[in-house]
Simulated assay, not measured.
Amino acid sequence: MAKTDDTIENRVYLFESLASSYVAAASEQLSSDDEQTRQRALRALAELAYVSCVVADTQRLSPEQVRERVLGSFEPEQPPEARPGRGKRR
């Protein structure tokens, strides 16, 4: 699908709106002294950018199809205890 100027503008507008709200809510995490906390917050911003692009690039799809596109390549970060080989030792 070719990206038109409208699509790029939509990407920017969506990301600006989503990121602005997220930064306001996660400012402590984004400026944390803990590297892992900061990285998780930055990954969330990257996911917002991705979602903005998918939504802008799939204007002609139904909401359900867009949802499937977003979730199809999204793998949520697992907590340490849920990762294979990282269970608690007894």
Rank of each mutant, 00 (worst) to 15 (best):
N10W: 06
A46S: 11
A24N: 10
S17V: 05
E64M: 05
L14Y: 14
A25D: 05
S27E: 14
G87N: 01
S20A: 08
E68L: 12
P80T: 04
Y13P: 00
A2Q: 13
A19S: 13
A26K: 11
S27D: 14
K3C: 07
D6E: 13
R69T: 06
P80Q: 00
D34Y: 06
L42N: 07
G72F: 08
S27W: 09
Q65K: 14
A46N: 09
D57M: 06
S62H: 05
Q39S: 03
Y13V: 10
R38F: 01
K3A: 12
E35G: 05
L61A: 13
R60P: 00
L42A: 09
V54H: 06
E77Y: 04
K3M: 11
P63S: 06
A25W: 00
Q78V: 08
V12S: 06
V55H: 02
L30P: 10
S73N: 13
L18I: 01
K3Q: 10
P79T: 04
V70K: 06
R60Q: 14
A24M: 05
V70T: 05
P76A: 05
S17D: 10
P63E: 06
E64L: 10
R11K: 03
L14Q: 07
L42W: 02
A41R: 02
R38P: 01
A26C: 04
E64C: 00
A56H: 10
E75S: 08
Q65S: 13
P63D: 05
T37L: 09
A49H: 12
Q65G: 04
E9R: 11
T58Q: 12
R11M: 14
V55F: 03
S73A: 12
R89G: 02
C53W: 14
R11V: 05
E35D: 15
T58L: 11
L18N: 13
K3P: 00
S52Q: 09
L45G: 13
R69W: 01
A25Q: 06
S73M: 09
R11G: 00
P63G: 04
A46M: 09
V70W: 02
Y22E: 10
V55S: 04
L18P: 03
G85H: 01
K88V: 07
S17R: 13
Q39L: 09
I8E: 11
A82G: 00
V12I: 15
V55I: 15
A46E: 11
D57P: 04
F15R: 09
V23I: 15
A25T: 00
Q65R: 12
T7K: 10
G72A: 06
D57N: 15
I8A: 08
R69F: 03
R40I: 07
L45E: 08
S20T: 14
P76G: 04
A2P: 14
V66C: 08
F15V: 08
A44Y: 03
R86E: 10
E28M: 08
R43Y: 10
M1I: 08
E81H: 09
V70E: 04
F74N: 02
F15C: 08
T4W: 02
Q78H: 05
V12C: 04
A2L: 11
S31L: 07
V54R: 07
F74Q: 01
R69G: 01
S32I: 12
A41M: 04
L30S: 07
R69M: 07
T58P: 00
P80C: 02
L71F: 07
R83F: 01
Y50C: 03
